[in-house]
């Protein structure tokens, strides 16, 4: 009796409050893996178009959008049926995208023609293009929805775009090959990772100036292997997680001091990441080892590895 009670208690403690669903884009297999965060298993593999990378949920949680670059479109997956139901008119070679808070407008970085395409999500129609630098990639929108930030990989800038006028209001030079941009939740800073430069630039979004940089040093690892890409920030803005690509590690950064407090060993060539909505777990996509690492956010520990498709790249978790 006592034993049964103990087992039940253990089971209760081990089970997460909610199970979430994570969608992982596999760049090489042309599939999206669906992961159940309760059992930590792949429950379904969805066939999509060529070279899926950027992936995100619509704000209502009903659909998953995945940029299939080599098919020059963004496909829409119905989260209920877990199958592709539609596609969006992006420009050529879409890679990453961002949507406004209302989930009405989608901004897509088109790597091949130096533009950001603006799409009306309800009408699923293309509204226009914004000319930016060479090889646009990283995309993020300010919490108030007024500013869109795009990074261009060969121009090495973060372009600040007014979403109302669709005009560039400022260009901030950062280190080489900026790939990802992330706002602090309180809007006070924008963090931009530079893959080749090996740093994260911290930009004051009002003054449009780089006000600090996060640098990474891992003993025994050559500088060139440290290639920051994806960034995740906790809702309290206290801790940032930075994926370091072929360094096979996630850096844990204290946001206030901008210093690395810990490196977590994950799979090979870690690209992007997503938190579960309760922020208990952080999932990272590891390109070369074809798996997803699960990090216990509070403990700052890798607790699990899940095999997915070939070259996993992007990840989104149902809200």
């Amino acid at each position: 009796m006592f034993r049964a009670a103990l087992l039940a208690a253990l089971a209760l403690a081990a089970a997460p409050a909610h199970a979430f669903i994570a969608y992982v884009s596999n760049e090489k297999s042309n599939t999206v893996s669906v992961i159940d965060t309760d059992s930590w298993t792949v429950t379904k593999t969805i066939k999509v178009g060529q070279r899926p990378r950027g992936i995100d949920f619509t704000r209502d949680g009903k659909f998953v959008m995945v940029a299939v670059g080599d098919d020059d479109t963004i496909q829409v997956i119905d989260a209920k049926t877990q199958s592709v139901v539609d596609s969006l008119p992006s420009g050529p070679d879409p890679e990453l995208f961002a949507q406004d808070a209302a989930g009405k407008t989608l901004y897509v970085a088109n790597e091949n023609d130096n533009t950001v395409t603006v799409i009306d999500l309800e009408k699923r129609a293309r509204l226009g293009d914004i000319q930016v630098g060479v090889e646009p990639e990283g995309m993020t929108i300010s919490p108030d929805g007024k500013t869109l930030i795009n990074t261009s990989e060969t121009t090495n800038m973060a372009h600040f775009i007014d979403t109302a006028t669709r005009q560039i209001v400022a260009n901030v030079l950062v280190d080489a090959r900026p790939r990802f941009a992330e706002y602090k939740h309180d809007s006070s800073e924008v963090w931009v990772s530079s893959e080749i430069g090996g740093t994260v630039s911290i930009i004051d979004p009002n003054k449009h100036e780089v006000i600090g940089k996060v640098t990474f040093e891992i003993p025994g690892l050559r500088k060139e292997a440290i290639q920051p890409v994806g960034i995740g920030m906790t809702k309290d803005d206290k801790t940032a997680f930075v994926a370091l690509g072929p360094a096979n590690r996630i850096a844990v950064v204290d946001v206030a001091s901008r210093k690395v407090t810990k490196f977590l060993l994950v799979g090979q060539r870690v690209w992007h990441m997503a938190f579960t909505p309760d922020e208990k777990y952080l999932l990272t996509t590891n390109g070369v080892s074809n798996d997803v690492s699960v990090i216990d956010v509070a403990a700052q520990k890798v607790i699990k590895t899940i095999q997915v498709g070939e070259l996993p790249w992007g990840i989104a978790i149902a809200p």
Binding site: G133, V134, T154, T155, N156, M157, H159
Partner: peptide, 10 residues
Amino acid sequence: EDNNTTGKFT
């Protein structure tokens, strides 16, 4: 051409 795309901003 690539430099001139950047040059528009600088």
